[in-house]
Nucleic acid binder design. Structure first.
Lengths: 215, 215
DNA sequence: ATTCCATTTGACCAAATGGTCAGCTTGTGG
DNA sequence: CCACAAGCTGACCATTTGGTCAAATGGAAT
């Protein structure tokens, strides 16, 4: 019972640890394989090998390939939603937009696989997360668009279409994850260094902020 | 013989027509299926059904699934390269960048499937077009980056990293194709109208041009 | 008309894949 | 230590899929 685990002196029982560890192991492997091969190209065997577990073990933790995939997509979505905090916490447009760009660039760097899985899912018509788009994401977008419109109405930034501004922010920040391989190739075959990531972030911030009259 | 076809009075012989027509039929169907299902999720049977031909016929024109896929990717790549013309023809930065945005937004609208196929290919590490990235695309990028740097040096626009500017242009314009489904959902479930596409293009142009000091 | 070659296609095959299951091992509460 | 449940896994299976092929059909040059 989970009660036992929760109340028995030493944090969690061995069993709970095993479960959590293996699920994490599988999810991490799945994220990478789905990103690199797409849903159709990914195989449970590949994911199992990458996780270092027998294939049958995957099906013990995740009933079907689709279940596993759904979990991977949900995780990146939540990470992105949380980046809204940096947007909401700000009091000025420059601060809010700037912090949001920084947060999303940081996510692109730390979770490139998840970003790709999301991109592929949406490109294919969002077969498994359509409801999220219609509820959570729609609400999220409308709320932020309203905030931006408020800034414009208050004369704090240039009049731009808030929706398209949001699309542009998503496009640019996620591009560094989704097209990371292309960027790496054009960078002479080497991944962007810390310095280059900083430069990329600054470039995006500079152009966008000046672009909305906050330069 | 093809000589016969070329020199026989009526343009091309029936044979040549058939070949061209069927190849076009297959390529169009393949572009759509690869975009909607990914390379791994696409099946020759699906493509055949969409093209209205028996599966064996596909293998008569394209030896393997990979051959067919390669052709689809090459086509969109060439379309994009040609968009460079609008960039090169311009004499001022505002004109060049503006025209390039318009050209690429137009392509996103007219070839959303191809754009998605390209995006998926790059996201998966460009397994079949890596050589293009390292040769053609690298040269293309370096040349345009040099042009932009020239404008900056001449004081015609604000100093920004030319590479990152190019990445941003690609990201934003292609976003309207690759994430078209998401945008459509956030647009109340309806595809963007002519007017809305124009507004999107204007938004991108306005923000970018002002962002590089050309507002 | 006849010959030759391009085109078409139903039937077929070997390999790969998602998923199942029965039996085994291991942890845990009593 | 025991009994039970959770966790593990090799072997297996039905289905799908890319690709093949031989036989049939159709166009065009002589």
């Amino acid at each position: 019972m989970q009660e036992n685990a929760r109340f028995s002196g030493k944090a969690a029982t061995r069993r709970t640890d095993i479960r959590r560890e293996n699920e994490r192991l599988i999810l991490t492997a799945a994220e990478k394989v789905f990103a690199e091969a797409g849903y159709g190209g990914a195989t449970m065997q590949l994911i199992a090998d990458m996780a270092g577990l027998p294939k049958a073990n995957l099906h013990y933790y995740f009933a079907t390939k689709e279940d596993l995939y759904r979990r991977v997509v949900q995780e990146i979505f939540e990470i992105w939603l949380n980046a809204a905090a940096s947007f909401d916490a700000a009091s000025t447009p420059a601060e809010g937009i700037g912090a949001y760009i920084e947060a999303k660039m940081d996510i692109s760097r730390r979770h490139p696989h998840g970003s790709k899985v999301w991109a592929a899912e949406v490109m294919q018509g969002a077969p498994v997360i359509q409801d999220y788009l219609e509820t959570t994401l729609r609400d999220w977008t409308e709320n932020r668009a309203r905030v931006i419109q408020g800034w414009i109405d208050a004369g704090q930034m240039a009049p731009v279409n808030p929706r398209h501004l949001l699309y542009m922010l998503w496009a640019m920040t996620q591009h560094y994850a989704d097209f990371g391989h292309q960027i790496e190739t054009l960078n002479g075959g080497a991944p962007l260094t810390d310095r280059q990531w900083q430069e990329a972030t600054e470039s995006v911030k500079t152009i966008i902020l000046r672009g909305v009259g906050l330069g």
